[in-house]
Nucleic acid binder design. Structure first.
Lengths: 209, 209
DNA sequence: TCAAGTTTTCAAATATTCTTGAAATCAATG
DNA sequence: CATTGATTTCAAGAATATTTGAAAACTTGA
């Protein structure tokens, strides 16, 4: 978390402030009728669209929503505040935050004088994208590459297939494997460790327009 | 979903336990009891893994399965053959093929002397990946960029928020928008038109390792 | 160690997405 | 232009995925 968030806080109880008694601040997006200003509405809109994109990429809507909230608020929030604002259950928020923490795009922070855990989202967009890509590479691309190896083995053992068929089959598997492996290695280099790798890669390519 | 987990695929027999007339539990293969050679088994494995990856990226399993089948067979197939091989309904195959055709990774072909339509998958992997990226860019990235513009407008109109808050909010929106737009433009250049654009981009980056 | 505050877990309930199957539509042929 | 074969549509049903809620398990402070 190199580029730590500024975490502009303004609410009632600051981080360095007193133990905020009970987290019973004014419900922000809850059931109680709260008049939203334009900024608040803009945040809602962002959350909605980010969640929509996420769900079309296989990220559970509520995971994307929580992430969007933390990103657009730009400050550490506790589970209570999140569930109140997003109107989701405590259990859901807990699982969701764990997922986001696993991906590395949200980090726990403890505020002194407060027993609750707080969470904040990576604020640097290139870093955010890197972390997402890295997580998916690990979880999906690498297993697929391994599986393609197995798939190849399953074919090679066969003796009944015609030589021509076998050759074509292996060629297809190999072309797929090679392309994916190349992407895998590229990402090792450019997003392997946190930082500006992705940014650099994009600038590099842009310069060749 | 995305968390790698055992994925139960085979549905049990009928709701009332009716012994499914013809269906003995068999993996992906055809309806008739055919002994599979290694090559066939290898194809099944490929289809399974490709489908799994697809579904974790938000592509319906059966869409990924049909695509995997067409890719790994490397030849034109008709709906009947596909539904027989994958054990899915005619309607499903029809919708699935339309989806794949929309993405441009599968194309219709007519065989003379045959009233059926045949379909075959793009065989060049870089081209395949380009087509996939292009489709998703159009369908998801571009709408998101447009939405971010609206989101920004919603904020700018507000006069009640503090100047500092507003400034930070807009900075977040803008950093996100700028990063995504840059990716959007890059893809215009490198995968905008079919061909080896992606391949070129990857080679370019690789050369900077 | 207890007690109070917090978080995690997970079976059940809910919501969403996918598949089916048969009728409707379309297209080629005689 | 009727017939036959093929494809598409789409409402209902099935399968999956997600969310809830409350109990269990932590944690911390005294």
């Amino acid at each position: 978390m190199s580029t730590a968030a500024p975490t502009p806080r303004e609410s009632s109880s600051g981080p360095d402030g007193l133990p905020s008694a009970l987290g019973h601040e004014m419900p922000i997006g809850g059931s109680s009728a709260v008049k939203k200003d334009g900024l608040e509405h803009s945040r809602d809109t962002f959350i909605t669209h980010w969640a929509e994109m996420g769900s079309s990429w296989g990220v559970p809507r509520s995971v994307a929503e929580v992430h969007a909230l933390l990103f657009i608020e730009g400050r550490a929030m506790c589970a209570d505040e999140i569930m109140d604002r997003l109107q989701v259950s405590r259990g859901s928020v807990s699982m969701t935050l764990r997922t986001l923490a696993d991906w590395g795009i949200v980090t726990k922070t403890r505020l002194r004088g407060d027993r609750k855990e707080y969470f904040e989202a990576e604020q640097d967009v290139w870093n955010l994208l890197s972390l997402i890509v890295r997580a998916r590479k690990r979880r999906e691309l690498e297993p697929l590459l391994a599986a393609l190896d197995d798939t190849r083995q399953a074919a090679v053992g066969d003796t009944t297939a015609s030589a021509a068929e076998m050759k074509n089959h292996l060629a297809r598997l190999d072309s797929m494997h090679d392309a994916l492996r190349r992407l895998d290695r590229l990402s090792d280099r450019f997003i392997g460790r946190g930082g500006k790798g992705l940014d650099v890669a994009v600038r590099l390519l842009s310069s060749f327009l």
